[in-house]
Write a protein that binds this DNA or RNA. Sequence first.
DNA 1: TTCTAACTGGTACTCAGTACCATAACGGAC
DNA 2: GTCCGTTATGGTACTGAGTACCAGTTAGAA
Lengths: 195, 195
Amino acid sequence: MSIRPPLRQRKRQRARDQIVAAAFELFAERGFADVTVADIAERAEVGRTTFFRYFGDKQEVVFSEEQALMDDWVARHRALPPAPDLPTALDQTRGFTVALVREMTADADHFLQHERLLAANPELADRATRKYQRLVEAMSENLRAKGTPEPAATLAPQLALACYRTARHVAGSDPVALPAALEDAFEQLIGLSRR
Amino acid sequence: MSIRPPLRQRKRQRARDQIVAAAFELFAERGFADVTVADIAERAEVGRTTFFRYFGDKQEVVFSEEQALMDDWVARHRALPPAPDLPTALDQTRGFTVALVREMTADADHFLQHERLLAANPELADRATRKYQRLVEAMSENLRAKGTPEPAATLAPQLALACYRTARHVAGSDPVALPAALEDAFEQLIGLSRR
DNA sequence: TTCTAACTGGTACTCAGTACCATAACGGAC
DNA sequence: GTCCGTTATGGTACTGAGTACCAGTTAGAA
């Protein structure tokens, strides 16, 4: 007896996959703004209503995969050892963030496709910002739970985000240059201590 | 002959003010989500079309005053002396940001009213985040124009934003505690150097 | 006064997102 | 297999944001 999930669940997954595939096809053809939810539903061969049952809004489908990844990384972050002060927390966050970004940019094509969508649609970039913000807050929450005092628990992940944004600016949308730029930004930040 | 602007311009300003006043009244009465643009237009005694001529969307009216303030602060930032390296840039940015936040929180009632709106409406908080991000980018632009090298030009303002967010988390929505919390966050950050 | 440009508000439209409902299909019971 | 409750589906109908267009009005200059 195989461990495959029940039919219900498989159907759900298939419908979801169809919607995502249809959406990305259409976005690539016509751009995010010129695709309606009805278009996506039609190509995915589901009702318009069904689309909204799987995704809260049109933007959400763009981040469907990222969300799962992020949840995974938050869980991994929870397993990290305690960091009792800011320098320790920052160093730990540095290692974690660099690893996260390396994974995010590992599939360069996928990363670039996503980048292009965000670059062409400010509303999507805003949504991405919101996602990052939530990730950072989850990291702070984890640190706090393991005894890192305030404001270090909040500050360390926020500083990591600052480094990430800086790297994003310096490296443009080059997925290869991004990890190195991120390391450099952290170097500059930590380098404040050796002066 | 007085230096008052021509009638056209005064009328424009009055219409704009009426819309803003009507909007904030209604938001206070019913909350942002339960007020339609048609409601605002009606109370302001203008057509629905006119509303959209003054504000790009319903959210924008919430930030109408903040936007003018920010433009002003960006101009002031442009007049700051050059900062040739990261420590200098960070120190300069620290002073600037603290002053900015002190002004923002000076009118405690106004600040709190705004806070409540953002707290109750995540979409508005997102929009605020976008505004901050633009402010930070403008600051980076200024630094770059005056010769601050990368990544310091990008990093310094991003670090300031990290401190601000940290302060926001620590101080909650207390406008009195916020400036002090911000100073503390900067202390922690700069304090990395004295270790 | 007259002409032009700017401003206005109305109509009509598209589309996102929500509420509701009747129907179909899964999956467990016997 | 049959029956039944739960869950998923897709359709209809609605609200409200935002856009395009247009005809009428008004400021301000000639």
